[in-house]
């Protein structure tokens, strides 16, 4: 197989090699370097030792951001673990028109998070559709201010993330359902197990591995959340900036006169530390599947 000249592979690999070095490996190294400097968006960047990390210890906003991330994760996990599975079970039977439903359910996934967040801003407004319908149906007597207040904002953003993620995880489950034994389902049915019983004792155990994959994916994306919170709070991070996420903090320090790229890099390292575990697990799961 050694018919090619020695440099041919490197010619083909050229662009990918440049991008690997310049836009993947170097930024990874430089994040660590920057975290020990006071670099600003408008220049500067002298070594400041562990000053940025000391600052992190006294950053009240960071505490809020981390608490928000944990709440985000804990609420998203059960919802995105089961709702998409139910959708997938619904789509599993090849009924006429099922392709249409599958495509339609996937639409929120392909829409930009900005578009989705603006749609939800309109839906959740004091005089928006959700408040209107809830009052019409008697669930609420006066509008609920979904877009103000730390926790309501956070839960509005979570509901948006869940809604946008439904189709994504649904497709993952759908391909896993194909491997769930049909005989097992039939046997359970013959034994008199109803659909709910069969869901818990046949379907769920059958997609165990996929559920692990989904929970890792949900965890990582909850820790990385940005656009939903940014757009719903109009870039402010909510009252007193208490509805921020870690990535929102990183973005906030990336620009303007008050920006601090060194501190933003230290926060990036923190993001790396809390995501690296799930990311490694994800890599393992994907390799096993492949």
């Amino acid at each position: 197989m050694k018919t090619q000249r020695w440099f041919t592979p490197w010619l083909l690999l050229g662009p990918a090699l440049v991008w690997l070095l310049v836009f993947n490996l170097w930024p990874a190294i430089n994040t660590v370097v920057l975290a020990f400097t006071n670099a600003k968006p408008l220049g500067g960047g002298s070594f400041t030792g562990v000053a940025n990390f000391e600052r992190m210890l006294n950053d009240e906003q960071l505490v809020y951001a981390l608490v928000n991330s944990i709440v985000y994760m804990l609420v998203c996990l059960p919802l995105l673990l089961f709702l998409p599975l139910l959708l997938a079970v619904l789509l599993e039977k090849k009924l006429p028109g099922i392709t249409f439903f599958r495509t339609a359910f996937y639409t929120p996934v392909i829409a930009s998070a900005v578009v989705v967040a603006l749609i939800w801003t309109w839906l959740l407004e004091d005089r928006g559709l959700v408040n209107g319908l809830a009052q019409q149906l008697g669930f609420l007597t006066e509008p609920l201010p979904f877009l103000s207040g730390r926790w309501l904002l956070l839960f509005s953003a979570i509901s948006l993330t869940v809604w946008k993620g439904l189709g994504y995880y649904m497709i993952i489950y759908l391909s896993a359902l194909g491997n769930v034994s049909r005989q097992l389902h039939e046997a359970a049915a013959v034994d008199g197990a109803g659909p709910i019983r069969r869901f818990w004792s046949v379907t769920v155990p059958g997609v165990r591995t996929t559920m692990l994959l989904v929970s890792v994916l949900v965890t990582v994306s909850a820790l990385r959340v940005f656009t939903e919170l940014f757009v719903l709070t109009n870039g402010t991070g909510g009252p007193g900036g208490r509805t921020m996420s870690l990535v929102m903090l990183i973005q906030m320090y990336s620009r303007g006169f008050t920006g601090h790229l060194g501190y933003a890099s230290a926060l990036s390292l923190l993001l790396f530390v809390i995501t690296v575990g799930p990311m490694l697990l994800l890599l393992r799961l994907n390799r096993k599947a492949a």
Binding site: A39, R224, F272
Partner: peptide, 24 residues
């Protein structure tokens, strides 16, 4: 080696390196 490095980059969420990408 090339493959190992490529695979290694997948562990990094894009947001982690976004600041140093901007500096680059």
């Amino acid at each position: 080696l090339f493959l190992a490095l490529v695979l290694g980059t997948l562990v990094l969420p894009g947001e982690v390196t976004i600041i140093s990408q901007y500096v680059t």
